[in-house]
Computed example of a mutant assay.
Amino acid sequence: MSKVTAALPHKSLHDHERKFLKLAGEGLAHEKVGGAAAMACLLDMVASWHATRVNIEFGEYCKRWVSEGNAKSKTADRLLRNLLGLDDNPPPRRIRRAA
């Protein structure tokens, strides 16, 4: 019996995505209301993106993650929507998050 498992897609952040995360983290750290919750959501997005088998760019994954209502606090949701430049567009198709 073989113990072969399907390989996850190789994922790595592009330079502009790493710079975005660094600037986003610094900016959210200065937000007195909701900044810590938004930073925790940002960390969750990175971990979830790496764990998902869907081959999707990080920026697009983040936008979908927030649009689907995964931020648990209204302030974090507002901060992340502002950060990602989201407006009132209809939500995209749901993506699967790894457990």
Rank of each mutant, 00 (worst) to 15 (best):
M1T: 00
M1H: 00
S2C: 02
T5G: 07
A6I: 08
H10E: 09
K11N: 01
K11E: 04
L13Q: 09
L13F: 11
D15H: 02
H16Y: 14
E17I: 11
K19H: 04
L23A: 08
L23E: 14
E26D: 10
G27Y: 07
L28Y: 10
A29P: 01
H30A: 12
H30P: 00
E31H: 11
K32D: 10
A36K: 09
A36E: 15
A37D: 15
A37V: 05
M39R: 14
A40I: 00
C41F: 04
C41A: 13
L43F: 02
L43W: 00
L43Y: 02
L43K: 07
D44E: 15
M45L: 09
A47H: 15
S48R: 05
S48T: 07
S48W: 03
W49C: 03
H50W: 01
H50N: 07
T52E: 02
T52I: 02
R53S: 10
V54N: 01
V54C: 02
N55I: 02
I56M: 07
E57A: 15
F58R: 12
F58S: 08
G59W: 00
E60D: 08
E60G: 13
Y61S: 12
C62S: 08
C62Q: 11
R64I: 07
S67C: 11
S67A: 08
S67D: 04
E68R: 07
G69W: 04
G69Q: 05
N70A: 07
A71I: 13
A71K: 10
K72I: 10
S73P: 01
T75Y: 13
R81N: 05
N82Q: 14
L84Q: 14
L84G: 15
L86I: 15
L86V: 13
D87P: 01
D88G: 08
P91T: 11
P92H: 01
P92Y: 00
R93K: 13
R94E: 09
R96H: 01
A98R: 08
A98E: 13
A99T: 03
